[in-house]
Every structure is written in structure tokens, then in C-alpha cells.
Amino acid sequence: MEINILEEFFNICDEKVFSCINCGVCSASCPISNFMEITPQKLIFFLINNKKEVLEKNTIWLCASCLNCQARCRKSIDFSKVADALRHIYLKERARKKLSLELEIDKIKREILIKSPQQLFIALQRKFAYY
């Protein structure tokens, strides 16, 4: 079964991605965009063109939900919600195909696990959870 990414997206997210004017302000203001395979603006462009590849880009995992882009976007689009929704679609897809998840807890450095705040770890778990 091929999924229709736009349809899946609008099932769980209200962000008005079609009002995006492709100005790129989100990408320019994002503190993490230089690590992303495609920038937030490009990802939204791919998404509204119904390109399923958006699920394969590291962009959706690197977005730290800092809302810097949302505060700058003149269309008030909250990219963190877009990333949230796409992660969720990705995880559900994988679960449906019975593939394991990519987060390997063993790969996290022990010293960080021990010292880091609870809140941070729960946030990480939430990021890799689907419902």
C-alpha cells in the first residue's frame, strides 16, 4: 500500500502549509538548518507537492521544536508541528511494516544518560513514540 503523504498529514495536523510563500525565512532563522538534508522551507515545498521523500530526510528528526521559525514566519506556520506529524507518520509506517525503530538506546553515551535531566530524556522518548 502506498501512502498518500498529504492526506496522512492533514489527518493529524492543522498547519496551513499551503499558505507557505516559500520565503525561506524559516530556514534562515533555524539554528539547526545547516545540519539538515533539506531545509524547513524546502521540506514544506516537497510536502505540498505530495513527495513522500520528506519522510526520509533527517530534517524531521533534527527539528528541536525551538519555534524560532514559527516566531519569524509571516504566515505563522509552525514547522515543529509539521515535523511532529511527519515523524509520527514515519513511525507508524515502520511499525506497520514491522520494522524496528532507529533509535538505539545503547548508542547514547552512558555519561549523558546518567547526568541529563529527566525531562530531556522523556522528551526524546516522546519524539520516538507513536500512538
Binding site: 545540519f35 533534527l62 528541536a64 525551538c66 524560532n68 553515551k109 549523558i112 530524556f121
Partner: peptide, 23 residues
């Protein structure tokens, strides 16, 4: 003063958090 510190990427992408903190 309000730019992201990298948040939970500290577990999965330390290099990014280092970059955020550096800046």
C-alpha cells in the same frame, strides 16, 4: 540569548548541540 541550545539532540546528535552552544 533566546537561540535554541540544541535540547534533546544531546542524545542523538551531540555535534549539533556543541555547535548551538558554541554559537
Amino acid at each position: 540569548k533566546t537561540r535554541c541550545c540544541g535540547s534533546y539532540l544531546t542524545y542523538t546528535n551531540e555535534e549539533i548541540v556543541k555547535d548551538c552552544v558554541d554559537k
